[in-house]
Amino acid sequence: MPNILNGKWTYRSFFNDPAFVGDDKQKALDLIFAEATFTFEISGTELKGIIDWGSGGLDLKGTVSSAAPLTVKIIGLGRPGTQTDGWRYDYHGNLAHEWPNAVKQVPALVGTVIRVNAHGPGAPAGVTASFIAVKQS
């Protein structure tokens, strides 16, 4: 089952604001914390990969637990000599339930992310968000 994680996933994280957005499309867009691509390679219970948002990214390492539900624990570290140097984000996610009678259900990881290391004046440590990552075909 951990092999389902291999490959590319469309990643979106969201600020955890309980306020309704109603018909305000800009308010809904403002909830997006990040959008990127996860690329995972799984070997046994080890995960490695990258998260890339086009203008930068983090190197990923982590573990996979195949006990139901499948769980990932990932550390994302910035790349030396790049804009992400010194960054650290931790991710914890679970494979979403697979419905037996679903029509065209796509595998999804759901979880939370925390900024472990501050970077820049508007990016303090401790900020958290929820995320959804959807498997690309």
Rank of each mutant, 00 (worst) to 15 (best):
F40W: 05
D59W: 00
R115W: 01
A67C: 07
G81Y: 05
N117V: 07
M1G: 10
G93W: 00
G81N: 03
S55V: 02
S43A: 13
F40P: 07
S130T: 11
F20N: 12
W9I: 01
E98W: 01
I114G: 08
H119G: 15
A123G: 14
S13M: 05
V64P: 06
T82D: 05
D30E: 14
E98H: 10
D90M: 13
A34G: 12
Y11R: 05
P107G: 07
I32V: 12
P69L: 03
A96R: 02
N117E: 13
L5A: 02
W9D: 00
A123Q: 10
T84V: 04
T82Y: 01
S55D: 06
S65K: 12
G78M: 05
N94L: 12
A125S: 15
Y11L: 04
G86R: 02
K73P: 07
D59A: 08
G62M: 06
G111P: 08
T39D: 11
I32T: 10
S66P: 13
T82L: 09
F33G: 04
S137W: 00
D59P: 08
F20D: 12
D85N: 15
V116H: 06
L77F: 00
S43F: 02
K27N: 11
A96W: 00
W87K: 08
R12M: 03
V127L: 09
T82W: 00
P121L: 12
P69Y: 01
A123P: 05
G62R: 03
L31H: 10
